[in-house]
Each structure stands twice: as structure tokens, then as C-alpha cells.
Amino acid sequence: MHSSIAHTAPLSPGTHAYRLAGLVQRYHVHGSGPVCVAHSGGPGIFYEYLRMPALEEHLTMVYVEPIGTAEDSRLPSHPHGYTRERYSRFLEILINRLGVPKVHLLGHSHGAFVAAHHALHRPERLAGVVLYEGSPVTGPEHAAEAGRMVEEFAAEHSGHPGLPGVLAAFDAMSRISSDEEAEAVAKGVLPSYFADFWGDEARYAPLRDAVQATYISGLDEDLAPDVVNDRAALRDLTLPALVIVGRHDVICGVRWGRELHELIPGSRLLILENSGHLGHVEEPALFADAVRSFVLETTAEADGAA
């Protein structure tokens, strides 16, 4: 079913690739220390935006390149069929290949939905999970809250010359049908994903300019939405969990972070007061300290239990 392309140690620094079910699965290893697997968002945003140099000083960061982003990793049903269950199955194979008893899993944005699903259904190789800008639900309730937060953002920045472009990108989001449109929308909405993009544009514009995206529909092979409602299941999650949310996040904001924290027994919650959707970029030291502490403490607990 799958075979290696390169025969290097699975956690050696650099890019790794192997074939699985006819697709190429890539991942990228940086840093040293306990292993933390990071799953990026979108779906369809290239993983590079999620690089976390401050964490790489303390942890072995394994950045997954989710299937669908590269042309040689696309399903026959592309741009459809990229469900949480499918991402989780590919993630299971990747984690098993790493050759360590247990890893931590960090998911950002859509990646947090994937990480929650994986923690609920395939927890055996996980020492803990970090849900970074996630939510227990998608669908109309989530969309309405995001709409409200975008309206607040618009009111706060009314009169700014960049605002019409951001709102136009949000308006175009539901009509994306190509990689080019997906990338244009990702770059267009990005100022609203920061606590104060325009206040420090010189710092953040390079990230916006570097964003790459593939169009992934969010529908399964039968063109039905892959809707999330983890509220009931999360009450039974037994893995250690850290929830991270930015105070100014318009997409998966504090309401959802608090709810995740309340649903998951014994979870920890970090609210980054000066961040939007990208706290690892906006408040990298606070973000890294929280994740590092969580990983080191729960690694020790997992080792003790073993």
C-alpha cells in the first residue's frame, strides 16, 4: 500500500516523503527534543505559515504537509473528499512511521478540527493534543459567530483603506473554485487574522505575501459537507489537552476556545491577549512557552505511565 521514496531516518532534519494509497505524503522535521506533530489549517493552506522557530529550539517539530496541497498528493476526487477522517487516517500512518512510542499533536485552525478528531478516534500514540484556534462545531452556528466577529473587525477599522479589500475577500470565500482564487482569498482576509496587522504591517506583510493555497472544497466525495459537532464526544476525551486561542481571532475566537476548554476534562486554556488567529507569529514567546511546558510535563507523565 505504501513504500518509502527516501530511506532516511524518519526524524532526521529536513523533508521526508513516502507513497501511500497512490499519493505522496510529505512532512518536514525541524528542531530537537520531544516530538510534536503539527497539522496546518485551511484546509488547503500550505504548511509553511505554521513554522514555529521558538518551539524548534525545544521540540522536534514534525510539520505535516496535508494531502491535497501538492499536486502529487491529490485524491482522485480532488478538490472533494478531504474529510477529517481521511486526514486522520493519513496522520495515523505518519505518526506510526516516526518510530517513537508517543507524540504530541498540535492542530491549527482546520488542523485543530483534524487533531480533535484524531485524539477522539486514534489516541493510542498520542501523549497529548494542542487545539490551537479550533472549535467544537462548524456549520451555521460557527458561521454566524464568525460573521459577527468580522463585523466587529470592520467597525473597529472603518475608514481604513485596506478594509474594503478584506471584506471583498470574505465575500468571495464562498465562491472559490480554483487554486488561484483560494490563494487570493487567503491573502485578502489575512489582515483580519491578526490583532493589529496594519499597526505592524512591515512585520506581518511578508507572511501574507508568502501564503500559498490549494482549493479544497470541504465536501466529501458525495459532495456533502464534512460538518463538525464534537460537543458530546469531547466530554469523554481522556488525553491531556491544551487549548490556545487569540483574544482577537475572528474565525475561531474566544467563545469557541472557552467551550473546548469547558468540554474537555482537565484541559488547559491559554488566551493570547494580543493575538488574532496566528498567535505563534504575534506572540511567539508566550505561545512557545505554553506549548513547551505542556509537552514536557505531559511527556513525563506519559513516560511515567508507561
Results as ranks from 00 to 15, higher is better:
Glu183Gly: 12
Ser217Asp: 03
Ala119Arg: 05
Val185Gly: 06
Glu156Leu: 15
Leu131Glu: 06
Ala115Leu: 09
Gln212Lys: 14
Gly162Ser: 03
Val100Tyr: 04
Phe153Pro: 00
Ser135Lys: 06
Ala119Lys: 07
Leu163Asn: 01
Arg148Pro: 13
Asp209Trp: 03
Glu201Thr: 01
Leu163Asp: 02
His142Cys: 14
Tyr215Arg: 08
Glu156Met: 13
Lys187Ile: 10
Gly165Glu: 04
Val137His: 12
Arg175Trp: 10
Val211Asn: 03
His157Gly: 08
Glu156Pro: 14
Gly162His: 02
Val185Gln: 06
Glu180Gly: 13
Leu219Ser: 06
Gly218Met: 05
Leu126Trp: 09
Arg125Ile: 14
Ala144Phe: 10
Gly218Tyr: 02
Leu131Ala: 06
Val166Asp: 00
Ser177Ala: 15
Tyr132Val: 09
Pro161His: 04
Ala182His: 08
Thr214Ser: 13
Ala172Trp: 05
Glu180Ala: 15
Pro140Met: 04
Leu126Tyr: 11
Gly134Asp: 04
Phe170Cys: 02
His117Thr: 14
Ala144Lys: 12
Leu163Thr: 01
Ile176Phe: 06
Val114Trp: 05
Pro164Glu: 08
Ser178Glu: 12
Tyr215Thr: 05
Ile216Gln: 12
Arg97Glu: 13
Pro123Ser: 11
Gly107Pro: 01
His142Glu: 15
Val103Trp: 05
Asp179Val: 11
Thr138Lys: 11
Val189Phe: 09
Phe194Asp: 00
Val150Gly: 11
Tyr193Glu: 13
Ile176Gly: 07
His110Glu: 15
Ala116Glu: 05
Arg203Leu: 04
Val129Ser: 10
Ile216Cys: 07
Phe194Arg: 00
Ala172Cys: 07
Val129Ile: 11
Ala127Tyr: 10
Ala169Pro: 08
Tyr204Phe: 06
Gly134Pro: 03
His104Tyr: 02
Val103Ile: 08
Val185Glu: 08
Val150Leu: 14
Ala112His: 06
Val130Asn: 07
Pro191Met: 04
Val150His: 12
Ala210Asn: 10
Phe153Thr: 01
Val130Glu: 09
Asp171Glu: 13
His142Lys: 15
Gly218Ile: 02
